[in-house]
């Protein structure tokens, strides 16, 4: 990384960095990002709403979904959100080990959720009801998998964060990122509530 101003001395003090990169800016920016992600999910929900009856001879939601299974998934994800919240609380108290512990729990719960979801996908595909089967299944898989993809990104991020905390402890910069990841994780939780209601609950009720 070269210095674009040759001849100018580099004085790198943490105080100045903190001043420059103020936290509110990043968190506000992250909220704006979440807003755009809301639009993305809203579009996918709209697509699902349009295609939900286009089963084209294939199974409908009522025939496919098992509510208890999805409820279990939901509870796992909700508790991961809870443990994520505890991680943030510990981070504010600068309890490094607690933070690592709660993030590990969150990570494990998130991974369990993802496994459950993939297992459900696998079951459907094995029965011959993959996304190729009908417009309804295309939109179902895409909507739920997009959420799953976000969860995956969250897990990678969390793993990196855990390593980061172990190596560097909880600095101001790390605390900021912990706030961001928890924001992200709670957001995914909210999206899942919508998926649970609109895709699964309404699907079975119908």
């Amino acid at each position: 990384m070269s210095n674009p101003m040759p001849g100018v001395e580099i004085a790198n003090t943490n105080k100045l960095i903190a001043k420059y990169d103020n936290e509110t800016k990043t968190i506000f920016g992250f909220w704006v990002y979440i807003m755009t992600d809301c639009v993305l999910f809203a579009s996918l929900f709209a697509v699902f709403a349009v295609l939900r009856n286009n089963t084209f001879g294939g199974p409908s939601g009522a025939q496919l979904f098992s509510l208890p299974y999805v409820l279990a998934e939901t509870l796992v994800l909700l508790s991961s959100s809870f443990s994520c919240g505890l991680a943030v609380l510990s981070a504010q108290k600068r309890h490094k080990n607690h933070v690592i512990f709660w993030f590990l729990i969150t990570f494990i719960l998130g991974a369990i959720f993802l496994t459950l979801e993939l297992n459900e996908f696998h079951k459907f595909i094995a029965m011959g009801d993959s996304w190729r089967r009908s417009g309804f299944l295309s939109s179902y898989f895409t909507l739920v998998a997009t959420h799953g993809l976000h969860i995956t990104i969250g897990l990678i991020w969390m793993a990196v964060m855990i390593g980061y905390i172990i190596k560097r402890g909880i600095t101001d910069g790390v605390l900021k990122r912990i706030r961001l990841i928890s924001l992200f994780w709670h957001f995914l939780d909210v999206v899942w509530i919508f998926i649970f209601t609109i895709v699964y609950l309404f699907g079975v009720l119908k």
């Binding site: 295609l51 084209f56 996304w131 190729r132 009908s134 417009g135 295309s138 939109s139 898989f141 895409t142």
Partner: peptide, 18 residues
């Protein structure tokens, strides 16, 4: 892209696309 590469039916004529 999913329609084209993975065989979904979002916008296809037939297959329940729209």
């Amino acid at each position: 892209a999913l329609d084209r590469d993975l065989g979904t039916h979002f916008f296809t004529a037939g297959g329940g696309g729209n």
